[in-house]
Structures are given as structure tokens and as C-alpha cells.
Nucleic acid binder design. Structure first.
Lengths: 98, 98, 98, 98
DNA sequence: ACCGTGGTTAGCTTTC
DNA sequence: GAAAGCTAACCACGGT
């Protein structure tokens, strides 16, 4: 692939100045880099989580059960949040919002 | 389900002291908390990413296309990594590792 | 569409009779038709659901709230199912499965 | 949350008679039940579809490719339908409808 | 008519 | 290698 201002290549760090290359391209590049940085962090966290499970497993805990518990607690939290939203909907429906 | 030291409920913050509750329960609880902490961070990052996309969108960039680019760059990176691994494999195979 | 190598292994012993049309092709066609039939039915049901919401709306009910309620009830059901699974996991973990 | 005739809970099957509970509540409940019934059927169909794919897979067909085919056929059908509609439009435009 | 949201689906990763 | 859980893309709905 030849030079492209859509930034499919990730290793050209030159040309900061001279060329009046279009601004939105720079802008886009910046966004993409931010996103990729964040995704890397996210991926790292996913690995950390796996590591914790591994550690627990090595100490004799059952991963499957742990996952289930985590999942259940999560749905509890979500349910509560949704109930709150429902309540808000009721309130706004009867003109008592805010 | 009676009280359980497997912590299926998420809102008991008591019993810091007295009861000689079993150690593995404590251990498990600790693991679960670490996991949930990490998952929260992960979730926060996911939101950050969405925010970046939103910001870009508000400046006129097309999110769909941006996602495509990110995806393509990722597979490129992976391909490159796989090629590198393959190279290492070759090297070690012919005794030139390191 | 010409003869297709879609099927990874070829385990049709021999043809039933005259036409040498390949059997797996017939088989595949049959599967696809079954799937498409089912998807049509599914789609029809989705429309029915929309109709019910519309009807309710025309009688003054708030669709948004209804959806929320349906969603909440669904997660309740799921939670219960997950709790049951967790219990099963416990049971099997302590050798009391069945 | 106190007793509510908005039916956020899903396991009360009592009160068939006595309380002259408001009619719209009954009405709403009826709608919700219809919807949930339909959604169950929809879910069942989704499972049927998955089963068909599984069966095909067990006979050596590649699910991924099958999905692709189904998808392609669907868009073809849609395209054809749109063309037909366009044709009808033309016909009626020049007074040759029906 | 568009946007934003939520729900659904498909593809990927990981686990057993 | 199959099964499940996770994630991301897609689509359809409702609101503005």
C-alpha cells in the first residue's frame, strides 16, 4: 500500500511540519492513536483479570464458580440500575421528573 | 440460600474481626474484589473509547470508517507479529536463535 | 453455482440413481431452506410484537416504560436461572451432583 | 418497592377477584403477557435455527459459509423486492397499475 | 428526517 | 475440537 493519508500504516512518525498536509488527516490520526492506546490498556486489563483467575485456580478455587458469582453480582447491579431508570420513567410519565 | 461465606451478596461490609470465618472464604472474597475492580477499570476504558469516537463524530468523522481502520491496523500488527514469531522459529530451528 | 467444495469431508457413499448431481448439494439446499423458513417465522413474530406495542401505545400506554418492564422481567428470569446454575456448580464441586 | 399494579414482579398469580384494581393495570398486564409469549416463541425459533446449523455442521458443512449464503440470499431477495416495488411505482405512474 | 439507544447477531477468544 | 463467554458490528425502534 502506498503512502496514504488515511493512516493505515502505523510507523511513520515524520513530516510534522513542511507539507501542508490536510489538518483533518492529522486530527484523525490523533483520534486513532488515542483509541489504540486505550484499547491496549483495555487488553492489558483483560489479561490481568485472567491472571487473577489463574492464581485463584492454582490455589484450588474453581474458576467456573467464580465466574458465575461475578456474573451474578454484575446482573444484580444492572438490575438495580434498570429499576432506577424505570422509576425515573414513571416519574417523568406522571410529570414529576426532577 | 442461607448466609454464605461464598459472598453471593454484594452489600455486606461488616464482620471485619471476631468470627473465625474460614480463611479460604476470605481469600476468595479478595480474589473476587480484585476481579471486579479490574472489570470496572476495563469498563471505564471502554467508555473512554466510546467517548473518543463520539468526539470524532462530532467533528465530522465517520465512526464506522474509523472502526474499520482501527480494525485493519490491528490485524496488520498481528500479522507482523506472527511473521516475527515465524522468523524466530526459523532462526531457532537453524540454531541461530538470540 | 457449480459443484461446491463446501463440505469439508465427502461422506456420501454413492448416488441414489441416475443424475450425478451431488448429494451433499441437495442436502445443503435443504438445510438452507429450513433455516430460511424459520427465519421468516421469526421475523413474523417480531412484527407481531411491534404490533402489540403499537396497539398498547394507541391506548395510551408508554412504550418506553413497557419495554423497560419487559426487559427487567427478562433479567429477573435470567438471574434466577443463573442462581440455579451456581447452585449446581456448588453441588458438583462438593461431590453432590445429581 | 411496594406493591404495584404495574407488574414489575413476575410471580404474583393471585388477586383474580376482590380488589377492583384499575382496569388499565389489567390491560397493561395483558399486553405484557402477550409480548412475553411472543418473545418466547421468537426465542424458540432462534434455537431451532441454531439447531439446524449444528446438525449441518455435524454432517461436515461449514457453518460460517452457510451463514454467508443465507445472508446473500436474503439481500438478493430484498433487492428483488425493491425492484418489484419500483416497477409497480412506474406502472402506477403511467397509469398501468394492476 | 436524523440521531441516539438498545437489542440482536455474528465472529473471536478462551476454556475444557 | 467443541462449547461458552466476550466483544464488536448491525439494525430497528423511538424520540426530537
Amino acid at each position: 500500500m502506498p503512502k496514504s493519508n488515511l493512516q493505515t500504516r502505523d510507523d511513520d512518525e515524520q513530516e510534522e511540519k513542511a507539507v501542508p498536509t490536510n489538518v483533518s488527516g492529522q486530527r484523525l490520526k490523533s483520534f486513532l492513536e488515542r483509541i489504540e492506546r486505550l484499547e491496549e490498556e483495555k487488553k492489558a486489563l483483560a489479561e490481568d483479570i485472567r491472571d487473577v483467575y489463574s492464581e485463584a485456580k492454582s490455589l484450588g478455587f474453581e474458576v467456573k464458580i467464580m465466574r458465575k458469582i461475578v456474573s451474578l453480582r454484575k446482573t444484580n447491579v444492572e438490575k438495580r440500575r434498570e429499576e432506577a431508570e424505570l422509576l425515573e420513567l414513571y416519574m417523568s410519565a406522571i410529570g414529576m421528573a426532577e
